[in-house]
């Protein structure tokens, strides 16, 4: 069974981004970039399925600028076998990304797609569901447990009220939540080995997908800042403030 894992290069999760003065976006100059945490979990899950003898090949694919090769190498060091970079300078919407991925699904014919539930930059939480729709596959979103058996995948999903388990016919799309696994650290030998693994680069234009988005960003502003608060020195003082000043209890 082949597993396809789409991954994204994003601002590292420890970075607190700043909005540009001209409000056209956030300032990404000289900011640390990383593999999106949910994508890392997706790669880990695919590699574990391979180690368990369930999957035979793990292919990672990223859509973005040439710099995303770095994150693809990270995924290869974590245990993926082969990488594809679909290169574009454009800032694509989830729909365009899903359309490109649908083309990759068409050529690669994976039995399972494992994808992060959201990218921590756009916070969209859309691509997996859209890809499932465009390829006519079932979807198991926000997975905290994935069991592949008998041509099906059972996915335990984190939902608002607790947990839900669904069973999907393969091929299917699974999107990862935080508790699915704890990704390993790449060892030095594996980082070295990853440099020799195949990484194909193709241009996004070559897929015949309309890359223009219908959504225009008019402005990106900083959020409202909270007024500085006060420190209280005792529980008594806290209760008094909440009762008399804030009037919330």
């Amino acid at each position: 069974m082949k597993i396809l894992v789409p991954v994204k290069r994003v601002v590292d999760y420890n970075v607190k981004v700043r909005v540009k003065a001209d409000q056209t976006g956030v300032d990404l100059a000289n900011v640390k970039m990383s593999l999106n945490p949910f994508c890392e979990i997706a790669v880990e899950e695919a590699v574990r399925l391979k180690e368990a003898g369930i999957a035979t090949e793990v292919v990672v694919v990223s859509i973005g600028q040439s710099g995303a090769q770095e994150q693809l190498r990270t995924a290869l060091a974590l245990g993926a076998d082969r990488a594809i970079l679909i290169e574009t300078e454009l800032n694509l919407d989830s729909l365009q990304v899903a359309k490109l991925l649908a083309k990759v699904v068409g050529t690669e014919q994976p039995q399972l797609v494992i994808i992060g539930k959201q990218a921590i930059d756009s916070d969209n939480n859309q691509t997996g569901q859209m890809l499932a729709a465009l390829t006519g596959m079932g979807q198991g979103t926000f997975a905290s447990k994935v069991v592949v058996a008998d041509g099906k995948v059972a996915v335990t999903r984190e939902i608002d009220g607790g947990l839900q388990t669904v069973s999907l016919k393969l091929p299917a799309v699974v999107s990862t939540d935080l508790r699915l696994n704890e990704p390993r650290y790449a060892s030095l030998p594996n980082i070295m080995k990853a440099k020799k693994k195949p990484l194909d680069i193709v241009t996004a234009d070559s897929f015949g997908v309309v890359l223009q988005s219908q959504v225009k960003t008019l402005k990106v502003a900083a959020p409202a800042v909270r007024q500085a608060g006060v420190m209280v020195d005792s529980v008594d003082a806290l209760v008094a403030k909440l009762k008399q000043e804030a009037k919330v209890i």
Binding site: G25, V26, I120, D123, Q214, V215, K216, T217, V220, A221
Partner: peptide, 19 residues
Amino acid sequence: TFVRPIYAGNAIATVQSSD
């Protein structure tokens, strides 16, 4: 035209859709 948070709420985007 709609407003939505991005980057864990560290930026607030105003977006316009022609769909």
